[in-house]
Simulated assay, not measured.
Amino acid sequence: MDNIRAVIDTLFSQINSAEILHHKKDWDATLGVTEDMFCSKFMIENKCYTIDQVRELYYLLRSDWISFPTECLEYRQPDFFYVLLHFSQKVLIEKDFQPCCRFQELLRWRMLTYKLGEDLFTTSYLAFNNFNANIKRDSFFWPVVLMQDNPSIAHILRKGVCDLHFHLRGSSLNYELNWLSLMNDMSGRQAEFEKLKKCLSHKTITTDNEKWETAHLTTIKAYAIRYYLFMRITNKKRRKLFFRYC
């Protein structure tokens, strides 16, 4: 479990999304994440591994973790995002249509979701379960921070816990609310991003060149990807995106 957790951290945290978006070769299951790229990124935060061990993990990724996580009569091609399911199936369970974390895996869950967030795992896990059970989910209301399945701890928490340590404007879901706002309406945001340009700009390194990309441009790309996925899922005719502030 620690190996696959480290692999997921590398794929979704260490590898810049721009490197995936700039991948120009024919589609492949690893989305252009080559062995050399994976090894170099993996070793940044996992120096206790030898290079041979890291190459073996890449082999496991290609041979097992990007394959459909359960036996299925219908043939399914390998997919980059199946690695999430190989992890979440061992860490999460679903009770009363609500996801929760297995108590014995709580530390691993916390260490990974602290960096990547919980939604990446909960949404893919529930979508996979619903697909297998042929269930159409109409409720997406579950705790922002998942509960665990230990009944003794759950009993204590149901009695209520008082936390007197409070940060002004720091105890609400600021990031989540801001991201929802951005992903539903990008119009008129250029001036706001201009104020943050210096502190939020980051370096993008691709196989073609090296350049600086602003947070404004990165967010526009995320908005466009979200729009594209929405149109694909709803089977609606795609329309061109126009940004009057670009």
Score class of each variant (00 low, 15 high):
Lys136Val: 13
Ala127Cys: 09
Trp27Arg: 13
Ile135His: 14
Tyr82Gly: 00
Leu61Ser: 08
Gln98Ser: 07
Ser67Ala: 10
Leu92Gln: 12
Asn129Ala: 00
Lys95Tyr: 07
Phe141Glu: 15
Asp36Thr: 15
Ser88Ile: 02
Lys41Asn: 09
Glu45Tyr: 14
Arg110Phe: 07
Phe87Thr: 04
Met37Arg: 15
Lys41Ala: 10
Leu84Gly: 00
Tyr82Asp: 03
Asn130Leu: 01
Gln77Ile: 00
Asn129Met: 12
Gln77Leu: 07
Cys39Tyr: 03
Met43Val: 01
Arg76Met: 06
Glu35Arg: 13
Ala133Glu: 10
Leu92Arg: 09
Glu35Gln: 15
Val33Met: 05
Tyr114Pro: 00
Thr50Asp: 01
Arg62His: 03
Leu106Tyr: 10
Tyr114Gly: 05
Met43Ala: 13
Cys100Gly: 01
Leu61Phe: 04
His86Gln: 04
Phe141Trp: 09
Phe80Thr: 12
Tyr49Glu: 07
Lys24Tyr: 11
Asp138Cys: 11
Asp138Trp: 14
Asp26Ala: 13
Asn46Leu: 06
Phe38Tyr: 05
Asn130Ser: 06
Ile51Cys: 14
Ile44Thr: 10
Phe141Lys: 12
Trp142Gln: 09
Phe68Leu: 03
Ser40Leu: 09
Lys95Ile: 07
Leu60Ser: 10
Ser63Thr: 15
Leu112Lys: 01
Leu57Thr: 04
Phe80Pro: 03
Phe81His: 14
Tyr58Met: 05
Arg62Thr: 10
Asp119Trp: 07
Leu57Met: 11
Phe80Asn: 04
Leu106Asn: 08
Phe68Glu: 06
Tyr58Leu: 01
Gln104Cys: 08
Lys41Gln: 08
Asn46Ser: 07
Pro143Lys: 12
Tyr58Lys: 02
Cys72Lys: 13
Leu84Cys: 13
Phe38His: 06
Ala29Val: 09
Leu61Ala: 04
Cys101Trp: 02
Asp52Gln: 12
Phe80His: 12
Phe80Ala: 02
Trp27Glu: 10
Glu56Val: 02
Lys90Met: 08
Tyr82His: 12
Lys47Trp: 00
Phe131Lys: 11
Leu107Tyr: 11
Leu126Thr: 03
Arg137Asp: 08
Gln104Asn: 13
Ser67Trp: 11
Leu21Lys: 14
Trp142Lys: 02
Tyr58Val: 06
Gln89Ser: 11
Ser124Gly: 00
Thr30Pro: 03
Gly117Ser: 03
Arg55Tyr: 09
Asp36Arg: 13
Tyr49Gly: 04
Trp27His: 13
Trp142Cys: 02
Tyr58Pro: 01
Trp109Ala: 06
Thr50His: 04
Ser124Pro: 10
Tyr59Pro: 01
Glu94Thr: 02
Tyr75Ser: 14
